[in-house]
Design a protein around this nucleic acid. Structure first.
Length: 421
DNA sequence: TCTGGGGTCCTAGGACCC
DNA sequence: TCTGGGGTCCTAGGACCC
């Protein structure tokens, strides 16, 4: 049995945890740089406002008119509450897999027999406990495969007759839930595949489940075939696949304000280099190649500019200094006077497991793992960027725009809620 | 006045090599 | 009668996810 626990409108719900005054109001949360809408609470959704990934400036008036409370993304708060929610969920299963900031899969293997009180009560208990301990509303879906657990979770949220919990453990329920589910709501089926499937007369998840997997593989891909099989109870997402190391690691960001000077671009790229290098070390991998890029905005009228530079390392590395050096060397190619830079980033690819990589006699690694782990440890203990490479600069002018930021209630001493008697 | 998220994986096609 | 290879690496862009 797999369970999928996921927080309802995670970011909006987090905003309500420490601010009861907005609990009964429509809350809408914006992406980085207050660019787009990325979450809306249930009340906002009912009012028909807060459509995901719509640019904020386009719907600003509409939101004001509806009396919506606007918040910038407060990742410090969300990441901390996420951790607490995951800790609580983890107590209810032998194994947990954190899928994203607001979702985790729980896995009950063959040796685990169904709880005497039934799966439904277990799911309800998880939901209630998370609410009691973290004050986050979650939905729990349970089924024999991850894709079906996702479907059950979808039903728990949207299908009449379910209130926050759904378990698919018989044919009747499977059919009921899948027939009430749009094919594009199936995990792995996006808009594009959805359109093609619709064209073939496949509209619901149930229609998709009824397809011949071999034919689907021919018409689409091995991935869609896997989805069809999972909808029929055959596990295709192995637990290890979900947990597998990344094959590529990226860090990219749009700037709070457009950038026109080289130094700021260098600082930004060095910052991304540090981020990806740290992520790479965390999964204990080495990168053989990387790409560095910078661009103006495709929305700008004065011509779109985009440049990238690919680099292959003679010896795979996960040392921040090697990765930063490449970003610095890329500057002449990426920087052009007069361009209003909107976005830049760094990507690592062709990744290998640290222990498995064979070095040769002629190319010795220049990495300094002790220095790197020392940096990682200091930063994990005292906070991000307590020590950093000087190339990142000390006067970054592209700070994220976060005009409607709430306090970092749980991660900053000065922001801890006060109770005044 | 100006404003438009971030991450990962996959693949077609071009460039280049022998 | 008409016909012209095959492999690797990189790039750009598409597709999916939240």
């Amino acid at each position: 049995m797999f369970a999928l626990c996921d927080v309802n409108s995670m970011y909006a719900s987090c905003e309500k945890v420490f601010d009861p005054s907005i609990r009964n109001k429509p809350v809408v949360v914006l992406t980085n740089n207050d660019g787009c809408i990325c979450a809306a609470c249930g009340i906002a959704k009912k009012l028909g406002i807060g459509k995901k990934f719509v640019p904020y400036f386009q719907v600003k008036k509409e939101l004001e008119a509806a009396g919506a409370i606007i918040r910038s993304s407060n990742y410090e708060l969300y990441a901390d509450l996420s951790q607490r929610m995951m800790d609580t969920c983890a107590r209810f299963a032998p194994d947990i897999n954190i899928y994203s900031i607001d979702e985790c899969f729980l896995f009950y293997g063959k040796s685990y027999s169904a709880p005497p009180e039934g799966w439904n009560s277990l799911a309800t208990c998880i939901r209630k406990t998370v609410w009691r301990e973290v004050r986050l509303p979650i939905c729990v879906g349970m089924a024999a495969t991850p894709t079906l657990a996702k479907a059950a979770n979808h039903a728990a949220k949207r299908v009449d007759g379910f209130t926050g919990v759904a378990v698919i453990d018989d044919e009747q329920t499977r059919k009921h839930i899948l027939t009430h589910m749009d094919v594009t709501d199936v995990w792995g089926i996006g808009n594009r595949l959805g359109r093609k499937l619709n064209f073939m007369g496949i509209h619901t998840a149930w229609d998709l489940a009824a397809q011949n997997p071999t034919k689907i593989r021919k018409d689409f891909s091995i991935l869609v075939e896997g989805t069809v099989r999972e909808l029929n109870g055959e596990v295709r997402h192995s637990w290890d696949d979900v947990r597998a190391n990344k094959k590529e690691i990226y860090s990219t960001r749009s700037f709070g304000q457009r950038i026109t000077d080289v130094e700021q671009l260098q600082f930004a790229l060095a910052t991304h280099a540090e981020t990806v290098a740290a992520k790479l070390r965390k999964q204990k991998s080495l990168a053989s190649a990387m790409t560095v890029f910078a661009s103006s905005s495709p929305h700008d009228s004065d011509g779109y500019f985009s440049e990238s530079r690919f680099h292959r390392f003679a010896v795979p590395t996960n040392d921040t200094r090697n990765i930063i050096n490449v970003t610095q060397a890329a500057i002449p190619k990426l920087f052009k006077q007069g361009v209003r830079y909107y976005r830049c980033g760094v990507g690592l690819m062709d990744l290998h497991r640290e222990q498995l990589f064979q070095f040769d006699l002629f190319n010795q690694s220049t990495d300094n793992p002790k220095l790197m782990s020392c940096m990682d440890n200091i930063n994990s203990r005292f906070g991000r960027s307590t020590v950093h490479i000087a190339a990142k600069g000390f006067d970054q002018k592209f700070a994220m725009r976060r005009e409607f930021l709430s306090p970092q209630y749980t991660t900053k001493w000065g922001d801890i809620p006060k109770i005044i008697c």
